[in-house]
Write a protein that binds this DNA or RNA. Sequence first.
DNA 1: AACTTTTTCAACCGCGCCCAG
DNA 2: ACTGGGCGCGGTTGAAAAAGT
Length: 263
Amino acid sequence: MGRSPCCEKAHTNKGAWTKEEDERLIAYIRTHGEGCWRSLPNAAGLLRCGKSCRLRWINYLRPDLKRGNFTEEEDELIIKLHSLLGNKWSLIAGRLPGRTDNEIKNYWNTHIRRKLLSRGINPTPHRPVNEPSTTQKVTTISFGVAGNKIKDEEDQKMINVRAESGLSQLEDEIISSSPFREQCPDLNLELGISPPSGQNYQQSHHDQDLKQSPRCFACSLRIQNSKECNCSKNNNNLGNIAKYNFLGLKTNGVLDYRTLESK
DNA sequence: AACTTTTTCAACCGCGCCCAG
DNA sequence: ACTGGGCGCGGTTGAAAAAGT
């Protein structure tokens, strides 16, 4: 006994949306707001599946979407977040205002993967391509000082995960022809990420206050006015500062990506 | 100009999670 | 505790556009 379909497929349109459909959807959501996607198509007079409406709205029609090319800054942020979160596109999108998970996923697959490969970095585990990749020990995302080994060997065993390289022939060619690889044969991209070099931490009074102290995750992503910002709390209690890495995550243990979930 | 190949990205699909009943 | 509906996520597909021959 399977799940009932989310909509009556026989009576729904598929494929590209027409201008008229877009206008209907926009008008309906403007009046009634988002939500209740299952009942929305009927209510809005659309011959579409609710999921399709949701996708169209979130990925294309939402007024707060940022259009245009990704900036270099966004590129680097995506790479960093991906190294921490993996293919958690919705979480990554949550840290890039105006970008959608689908957009970032596509951009990753078409541009950033290639960019990393040309740097000699395997985009899946974020490690050099010439490193053995069948069964790798991937250190749980830990922001301790380099050399801060995980003490318990059992813990170490628990975090052995299989990482597929999944490189295509084309990607192999990109890598083998990469000048970067020749320059940096021993490039080691550990997941412990240090602050971007040359970054100016004194851009705002907020940063000014913090120039001697680590920044929280929210500040690092320039959403320091959000409730996720820990700096003020931190500053009020300087005697008891938790150590934060540049992403603002406490360094006393393992990153649980769920803590990054957008609210 | 015509055709083929490659790239891009909007949209679809199926699964898993969450929550109300 | 269990079940089913709704939603969101991530992987995949395929049409359109761009690039190459």
